[in-house]
């Protein structure tokens, strides 16, 4: 034990007793978060597979449903989320370099960008109620919206919107959880819990946040840009 202690960069309160040193603990942390992300790929993977099947069956309906969405809003929201990934990566970097102030600033910036994303999403969800294209709760498309959905079959377009709400909803839940974790990190970061030797929580939450970003990178073209908009 005294041999192992000699290799410790410092005796840190963040080191759990089952690990030899912080480096071993960190590698274990990475392994854990990546295995969790693998289960998340399987979780979202099932939805993506179901989406692929029904999009193949009812392509015209999915295309019609897709054209109800505002592609420019979706693109803008993609940019907002990519920005939050940038600030998240910079948070981890600030923790690595021991810049406590920058760490907290970048974490809060990530939080704000995540909130902006959800704000736009909430506006879009509200639009769906205005257009009466919410399956189960308010499904009564009329006028121009109905004209766009009719070629593919209105009932099948309802299926598209079920996928739209299920996939973006599950994504939004992940965002809310991520934002909760960011608040926790910002509080701990402000207290000075993270040092260049111990910042695994920041990096682990960062990996989760980037994963959620990747899910959106695929959701955007799959939901907003079906079949082109020419």
């Amino acid at each position: 034990m005294s041999d192992a202690e000699a290799h410790l960069p410092e005796h840190h309160s963040g080191l759990a007793h089952q690990f030899e040193d912080l480096e071993q603990q960190q590698e274990s942390d990475f392994l854990g978060i990546w295995l969790f992300l693998v289960t998340e790929i399987m979780f979202f993977g099932g939805l993506f597979a179901a989406y692929a099947i029904y999009r193949f069956f009812y392509f015209a309906a999915f295309e019609g449903g897709s054209h109800i969405l505002d592609a420019r809003l979706g693109a803008a929201n993609t940019a907002v989320l990519l920005g939050s990934s940038l600030t998240m990566a910079l948070s981890v970097r600030s923790a690595q370099t021991g810049n406590r102030r920058a760490l907290v600033v970048f974490l809060i910036a990530t939080l704000i960008l995540g909130g902006a994303f959800l704000g736009v999403k909430a506006y879009e969800y509200n639009q769906k109620f205005v257009e009466h294209v919410v399956p189960g709760l308010d499904w009564a498309p009329e006028g121009e919206v109905l004209a766009r959905l009719a070629p593919g079959g209105v009932q099948h377009a309802e299926l598209y919107f079920i996928f739209y709400f299920a996939m973006t909803g599950l994504h939004a839940i992940h965002m809310v959880i991520g934002m909760g974790l960011l608040i926790w990190l910002a509080i701990r970061g402000r207290k000075g819990d993270f040092t260049p030797h111990y910042f695994a929580p920041v990096e682990v939450v960062g990996l989760y946040w980037h994963f959620v970003d990747i899910v959106w990178i695929f959701l955007f073209p799959l939901l907003y840009l079906i079949g082109g908009r020419y």
């Binding site: 990546w34 790929i41 399987m42 993977g45 998240m88 960062g206 980037h210 970003d213 990747i214």
Partner: peptide
């Protein structure tokens, strides 16, 4: 995003094989 933001570029072989396996499954 995976290679740069998630910094898999500099990660261990074990992590890489886990990621590749996940995408292979998908």
């Amino acid at each position: 995003v995976i290679l740069f933001f998630m910094n898999v570029r500099n990660s261990s072989g074990l992590i890489r094989i886990i990621i590749v396996a996940a995408f292979f499954w998908f």
